[in-house]
Simulated scan of single mutants.
Amino acid sequence: MDSTASEIEFDKNGVCNFCRHYDEVLVNDLYADEDGQEKLNKLISQIKEKGKNRKYDCLIGLSGGVDSSYVAYLVRKKYGLRTLAVHLDNGWNTELSVANVEQIVKKLDIDLQTYVLDWKEFRDIQISFIKSSISNIEIPTDHAIWALLIKTAAKMKIPYIIAGNNVVTESIMPESWLYGSKDSKLIKSIHNKYGKVKMKTYPRLTTFNYVDYLLIRGIRWIPILNYIPYFKADAKKFLTDELGWRDYGGKHYESIFTRFFHAYYLPVKFGYDLRKSYLSALICSGQISREEALEEIQKPPASTEILNNDLDYVLKKFRFSPEEFDMILKAPNKTHKDYSNNDSLWRRYRKIIKIVRKRITRV
């Protein structure tokens, strides 16, 4: 990490706060040892027991990316769980991501449920976020995925959501770069200011819904990759060799919009390179060396051809003229604090939220 993350600070030994945070998370949330395997085996037994007389034991989100695809393999093939995969189609899938999803569910014999967002409505929400000039314009997609998984689990009475979020590749991310996606109040505030289409079908969870589904109804969110030794390069090779999965390039590049967001929007408008956060996590987890990360970061996030094609495609789908989008890029940058949000609420009840998080994510 570097000073493009405004909150970075170093101790007397030259260790930054992000590395110290990683060490804390490692102790609290990672169980990739014999104890973790024992906990996981116990969990699998609990899931199977609770799944008796139900059609499915668990639910997973499936994007076609490496993490979700490997989770699909684990729950279905390795642990034999009857699995429902849920895929959110937000209108930005690459052909490769679609092919990966189809290949995974076919090879593993998993039922797939695809939820297609209303494009007119979702397009309006995305445009609202772009016009808001905040950095995390992926909040509408990330929130929709999170809400869809939880609502589907509740509707189908599936008590366990097995997720691909993990410590070793995703535990370092400055909030100044990407504010979290669970804040439905922020989504409503930005859409009310810039949107034109009424929000009717977009999957959304309020703070009350969060408490209802995860505490009262008892839906569990299990980050299974934190309970095994998870090495991303090994997972990619395994998926390629055994399941015919194909790599799509950068992290989350299975989506055209996400690739545009990572490789163009953030670097150009804010000067943020998210690869620094992901590579930092891989350094901390020992999966790559600092020298390898520095070599990787010298490469462009995507080729000039891909960047130009993605820019043209995004402008066309949003019906932006080049001049209009250039004005958006040059507009003063803002943060979530410039709009109504639940940040103060979440911070006020941080200790309670931490306890709740342990309850719903730990075995």
Rank of each mutant, 00 (worst) to 15 (best):
I360A: 01
G195E: 02
K200L: 03
T114D: 09
A235D: 05
D247G: 03
P223A: 06
T169N: 08
R350C: 11
T152A: 10
S344D: 11
I297R: 10
M199D: 03
G61C: 02
P301T: 05
N341R: 07
E254I: 03
Y248W: 11
D29M: 06
G271K: 06
Y227E: 09
K251T: 08
G195C: 02
T240V: 10
L62I: 06
G80Y: 06
K351S: 15
D124L: 00
E49P: 04
F238N: 00
I172A: 06
Q46F: 04
V27W: 15
G80Q: 04
L205Q: 05
A281G: 02
W119C: 11
I134E: 05
K317M: 13
E9L: 14
D310S: 14
V25F: 08
N226C: 09
E170C: 11
P300K: 11
D338F: 10
P322R: 07
T240R: 14
G64D: 01
Y56A: 00
S135D: 12
E323A: 14
I228K: 11
D343T: 15
N100M: 04
G36S: 13
K337H: 15
R54I: 05
E170L: 08
A153K: 08
Y313C: 11
L108Y: 03
D142Y: 10
V105Q: 08
K334H: 03
I127C: 08
C16H: 12
I162K: 00
K196V: 01
S69F: 05
S303A: 12
L26D: 12
G218N: 02
K12H: 15
I224E: 08
K48R: 06
